[in-house]
């Protein structure tokens, strides 16, 4: 049996290790476990970026038929990632700053940073600049669900807050209280102007 890559129905190219049955077992040898987990981390962040998925939950490994099924399962070899191992992988993702537990104070779900919050901050500022929305007040909804689809469409509010927080530090954004909650105003500048 040869281990080969596989293109999923959503057009993602799975690496050949995904067709290796032991890939779906939490390895008892720490060194081997680290190697396998590193592959999972790459696969999960890559797939999340491909599908623009922001959340990964332990329960995604518990039941079929969700956004993650074609990664967390391999029906061709009849293997699936056990929830306990996924839970461990989530912990590693958080430790590597590639994810954060969201909501905080639990360990069953993470928000994935397939772009780092710092990168999101730049994307956000660039979008505001290129769409001519500097200095005007925007609601969070204006950003997460703009009339014209943007790279920020669907970004989770907690992640948006982080990005705005980073821009605030370089005086490129300001959180403003508006009647129905919070808004944000962007200012010209770049990350080197503090």
């Amino acid at each position: 049996m040869a281990l080969s890559t596989h293109t999923t129905s959503t057009g993602y190219l799975l690496p050949s290790i995904h067709s290796a049955p032991p890939f779906f077992t939490q390895q008892p040898n720490p060194t081997t476990l680290a190697i396998a987990t590193e592959h999972w981390v790459k696969l999960i962040t890559g797939y999340a970026r491909h599908r623009k998925l922001f959340f990964l939950r332990v329960e995604d490994a518990e039941s079929p038929g969700n956004d993650w099924a074609e990664v967390l399962r391999n029906e061709r070899i009849n293997r699936r990632l056990p929830p306990t191992y996924l839970s461990y992988i989530l912990e590693i993702l958080v430790n590597k700053n590639l994810a954060a537990y969201e909501p905080p104070a639990q360990t069953r779900a993470v928000m994935l940073f397939w772009r780092l919050p710092e990168e999101w901050a730049e994307v956000l500022h660039e979008w505001a600049t290129s769409t001519g929305q500097l200095n005007s007040i925007l609601t969070f909804y204006d950003i997460t669900d703009p009339p014209l689809e943007s790279p920020l469409t669907g970004i989770p509010i907690p992640l948006l807050r982080r990005a705005i927080g980073i821009l605030t530090k370089s005086n490129r954004a300001q959180i403003i209280s508006i009647p129905d909650g919070e808004g944000v105003r962007f200012f010209p500048g770049n990350k080197y102007v503090g």
Binding site: P21, P22, F24, T25, P28, N78
Partner: peptide, 14 residues
């Protein structure tokens, strides 16, 4: 081979 030497990977779903 598996635990000490890391020469092989375990598959517990076989």
């Amino acid at each position: 081979m598996c635990l000490r030497d890391g020469l092989c990977w375990v598959d517990d779903q076989d």
